[in-house]
Simulated scan of single mutants.
Amino acid sequence: MLSDLLQATDAGGLLIIQDFASYSGRHLLKSFINAALNREEAVHVFGFEISEAELKDGLKGPNLQRLHFHDAFTDPLGWTDRPAFTVYQFNLEKLTHLVEQTSHHKPATVVIDSLSWILSHVSPPVVCKTLQQLKKGRAVRSVIGLLHADMHHIGTVGSVCHLATSVIMVAPGMKGDEAVAKITKRSKSGKVMQDEEVFSIKEDLTVMVQNKLNQTGPKQTDPEEQESDPAANLTFNLRLSDTEREAKEKLALPFVFSKEKKTALLHSGPGSGRILYEPDANDDYDQEDPDDDLDV
């Protein structure tokens, strides 16, 4: 699934790369930038955390001329007289204006590095509204954002990821050059697909998917996610063995009638008991009015 996301077959989506302090997702972010440039797309990077030179490190070739860096790293809060781009300019009008200036009327890919910097100075509802408007705009083909999950409240992370069509949560792998990607993808029909893959990033920023995590062995659960077994320390056994389970399935319950028992109850045979009533001479019974003896 990671390879499909790198090919970016679906337009009009929002991709969130969610990382933690244990593993940075910026290398994967640069791989998505490199893949978009190889598809001959215009890429607009709004950089808050690293400089333009550091971002372009590793990106080579003639496709680099289609990469447009909007410097929000030098003066992100607008303290100088002429800031290039500030965090307070993160709105639909300003972003669309900058993209349309250099994209030659062709939808471009917008990269935000990172959303965490913006969320630290702009309220989450405003950021979510801008992302929703941006991914639906005609000037933008797709939006890719880096989000440091351990810097925000879980509700803020959930709100941003809820807008995304795809979320990639990255974590360190077993080897030094490997990482694990937990992918959640939502289709236009509402179907949600999830996958876990082990990948590595080469020097030319190409992504090599090693294998699927569920094929390498049983999934390891974090200690915090493990639920305690309520029947682990009991003095009696609550579980059944295979023999006991088989005997239980063969046991006939008292309130469940078999076919033979139902037939015997519904169809009386010879010798079965019956109640016959013969009126007595003293019985005052009127055939025309059976209820004559009632005081009504």
Rank of each mutant, 00 (worst) to 15 (best):
F90C: 01
G273I: 13
I154P: 06
G269D: 14
G12P: 02
P83V: 01
S116W: 05
G269R: 11
D4E: 11
E260K: 14
R245E: 14
S120R: 13
L119N: 01
P218V: 08
V43E: 07
E100P: 00
G190T: 06
K188V: 11
I33P: 02
D19G: 02
D295T: 07
L251C: 11
F85I: 02
G217D: 03
S116C: 06
T243P: 02
D286V: 04
H27C: 04
D19L: 01
D283S: 12
E196I: 07
A164H: 00
S166R: 06
N34F: 09
L15H: 10
N214A: 14
S116G: 04
E227Q: 15
I33F: 07
M208I: 02
F32L: 10
I118A: 10
H97C: 07
A264V: 11
K250F: 02
N38S: 04
E244D: 15
S187T: 12
E260Q: 13
A247F: 04
T221Q: 12
N282S: 13
L67G: 05
Y285K: 10
D286C: 12
K182W: 12
S103F: 00
L77W: 08
V207F: 01
P172N: 06
Q210T: 09
R26C: 03
E225R: 10
K250G: 10
T263N: 15
H162Y: 14
I33N: 03
T243G: 07
H267F: 15
